[in-house]
């Protein structure tokens, strides 16, 4: 069958991803590599630094509307949150409280806190979470896109959960503990991290979409990410105690319903999919039409 490969969001660098998402020529970078912002901690580990410390921040326009945007570089130390890395993100988010863009767009791609600067990184993650809540309280939507090879784990998984709206591709994995961590602590029988199909049907974008964590599932294609971000900017989000309590209740129900199941296929079956084993093979469009045709979401 003739098959044409498309550009890949997964394989793109952070800078390429920003180029895909924002209006051409509109990106104004803040504290760019030429200013040489870098981690002060990595020298002592003999680890090469990166100017920008693995995250690009700036302001741009999407369809002519102003946004703040950040993109983590998963190819540098797994997109991990170090001290400078986190401070750059926090700075952009706090600045947005004053500049009041139409949205803050976060292109996450991170395995979590950088172990070489763990304390600073952990603090950084909490500061980012705090800034996200402040933005939400001000009514500025925080839109997350996940489609890199690191996915979002550890602190990055938590931060993603704090955003108003999560867009992901099937290739994106989202979770708290990564597959290797689960295997190490719980044993290979509990979770075989080398069984990639198992890893993806558990943590991958499709399952997160079916659970409602990911609001919009897209193919691994830059145009689809851009158009999903545009659609998200047309939505309004309400951040209130009432909504949080409703969410808490929903999560409790979910835990009661699926908590004893140890296989995604069983969960999908319980959700109402007649042939759950077909789900991993489906394209995004096929999955969405199956969901609409009666498979519960």
């Amino acid at each position: 069958m003739k098959f044409k490969i498309s550009q890949s969001y997964l394989e793109a660098t952070a800078r390429q991803r920003i180029g895909f998402i924002v209006d051409k020529g509109s990106f104004k970078e803040i504290a760019p590599p030429s200013e040489k912002p870098a981690s002060p901690h990595l020298d002592m580990f003999n680890i090469p630094k990166s100017f920008g410390d693995g995250v690009i921040i700036g302001e741009a326009e999407i369809n002519g509307r102003p946004v703040s945007i950040l993109a983590q570089e998963g190819k540098f130390m797994g997109g991990a949150f170090g001290e400078v890395h986190s401070a750059r993100i926090t700075g952009l988010l706090r600045r947005s409280l004053n500049t009041k863009p139409d949205a803050v767009v976060c292109l996450w791609d991170s395995g979590g806190v950088r172990l070489q600067e763990a304390n600073a990184g952990e603090i950084g993650v909490t500061e980012i979470m705090g800034a996200i809540f402040d933005l939400k309280a001000t009514g500025i939507p925080v839109i997350a896109a996940v489609g890199g090879s690191c996915g979002c784990f550890g602190g990055a998984g938590i931060i993603t959960g704090c955003c108003d709206y999560v867009i992901a591709s099937e290739e994106a994995r989202i979770g708290i503990s990564g597959p290797e961590v689960i295997e190490t602590t719980m044993g290979v029988d509990a979770f075989d991290s080398r069984d990639r199909a198992l890893v993806w049907r558990t943590t991958g974008g499709k399952n997160r979409y079916l659970f409602g964590f990911v609001k919009e599932l897209v193919e691994n294609c830059p145009e689809e990410f851009r158009s999903a971000i545009c659609s998200a900017m047309a939505k309004s989000f309400k951040y209130s105690l009432k909504n949080l309590e409703a969410m808490q209740e929903h999560l409790q129900e979910r835990a009661d319903k699926f908590g004893s199941m140890d296989n995604t296929f069983d969960i999908w079956k319980e959700m109402g999919f007649n042939s759950p084993e077909a789900i991993p093979e489906m394209t995004v469009a096929e999955l969405k039409s199956t969901v609409q045709a009666g498979g519960e979401k």
Partner: peptide, 13 residues
Amino acid sequence: DGLYNPPSRFRNW
């Protein structure tokens, strides 16, 4: 056209 059925360890879906 769906005929190749890769082993689990090679899938990221």
